[in-house]
Design a protein around this nucleic acid. Sequence first.
RNA 1: GUCCUCGUAGCUCAGUCGGAUAGAGCAACGGAUUCCUAAUCCGUAGGCCGUGCGUUCAAAUCGCGCCGGGGACACCA
Length: 583
Amino acid sequence: MPRKGVVMREIVFGLVGRGLERLVGEGVLPGEVLAAFPGAGTEIKVERPRERSHGDFSTNAALVLARLAGMKPRDLAQRLLSAMPADLLDGVRCELAGPGFVNFHVSPERLRNVIPVILQRGADYGHSRAGNGQRVLVEFVSANPTGPMHVGHGRGAVTGDVIARLLSAIGCAVEREYYINDAGAQIDVLGRSVLYRYREALGCPTEPPADHYPGEYVIDIARALIARDDKKWLATPLSGKPPVEVVDLAIELVMGEIRSDLESMAIHFDHWFSERTLHAEGGITRVMAHLQANDLIHEGVLEPPKGREISPEEQDDRLQVLFRATRFGDDADRPLMKADGTPTYFAADIAYHFDKARRGYTRLIDVWGADHGGYVKRVQAALEAMTGQKELLDVVLTQMVNLTQGGKQVRMSKRAGTFVTLREVLDETGSDAVRFWFLTRSSGAGLDFDLDLAKSRSNDNPVFYVQYAHARVHSVQNKLKERGLSDEEGDLARLTAQEELDLIRLLGMFPETVESAALSREPHRLTYYLSDLAAMFHGYYNNYRILDEDPGLRGARLALVRATGRVIANGLDLLGVSAPESM
RNA sequence: GUCCUCGUAGCUCAGUCGGAUAGAGCAACGGAUUCCUAAUCCGUAGGCCGUGCGUUCAAAUCGCGCCGGGGACACCA
């Protein structure tokens, strides 16, 4: 009898692996085939067939290896079939199918085994060690401290946080980091914007600075500045660099808002990394020296941008310091120094990412808005230049969020200061709706967020749909007590209906869903899984009485229902969404 | 012009980094309620997977070329 807790998929991998070993031993196949299997480098796969009649698992091994063996695929498949060890075959029926697939049908007895496994492992079910203890740093949000978060930032926030949760679940050591761009030109703009509103509030208005942030929040900061410093800054000019004391207060207040928004969505960071520390601690000079020493910097003239017309006056023929990004696959060499002698944002970003690498993470993940997509190559290029490591950094890009209400689009414009903030949306719909909804699409696809639907208590609202499935699980159990029915262990063999076996199969796929969502950095896979699971459960619930009079059957169905509730709860937990027991 | 991204049912999108007869939700149409929450479910209909070539035993998936949408393209971040 196979051990409880061993995932079915692993057993099938074992079957195929041992079968191949034997064929190698018999000289049918060359030894190399074993080196790769079941790693990533092989074409040989064990997968879940779409078609149910094709079984629970299927392998293409014979199709892939037919040429190497000099045999027809079906003949090789037949050899593989007879080479598989009988001791692992308990409850698994294998057959040759199609052009040379070997299909594995798992018996109902074996399938049902997952129910006690889920109930035993509880909150741990779905967790694994597939991540192999890797140290991963996920950097996300990193919204500039120049204004409140908008919904687009929110999407990045949820995406990053759930990627981090998923990676933890598969056994990675994950840390979350927020990069604060608290140095640079946009911060000066913020400072001047505050001074402008400050003078306005004190009754000494001036012309607004050429570039300024129009939002209400700037006025709030100005008021706070008055409260703290009174008229101290009235004589300060609105051009040039604003005083540090003013800028720092502004950053502190804006970051306070951002932190509280994140807090409302239960997003916690391990590190808040300030760009200023890079400048202060010489990180940038270190990077420049390193690049210089490796002949990765040269002086050159920047090619004019291709996308727009450049007037002759605008044209810049100046020699400047460029990083040889083209050596690492980027389209152009990128500037490291501004005309005023200060480093570019890119230079700081190299230093920042190099700093991450030096902290010893085996993997870096950045979540950016899609509008920064053009930036991916150069940062990856720089990181490779600094560390010699390729593919250390994964960048996940999130597309825009369109807010709608009653079918009409809610217009957002940062320039006009009328954008709808994340805070407003959170107050309107709540964290659960926002978190779940932001993951109902792959991050690369645009997303419509319907404010009305997201807070509606209807089956059209995917959040409620899944949460309600969970609530139902508990509602049945309450009913059981209410009626004073006995809660016996039940006989799982009584679960013979097609719907029951399908539900059980789906429960068994939860761990691999978590794993694939984590490894591919695609949290939406989990969202889809939960919606499917909820749908299947609702269907089952509607067509079968859980609280049957027969205690044996009742107990079995209750176990299935509880296992389903467990999986939904675990899944929602990975999404950071609550699993209410009643609604 | 270059790079990124997307193109799948009327609409919004999945499709597990090549698998066997391409899925879901919404919308449309037809049903289910003396019953554990109808906040739910069941059924019908709907497709040249943008397009052409190529790679392969096998392509919605990979490569190249077009077509179309979105985004990014010098010392802003």
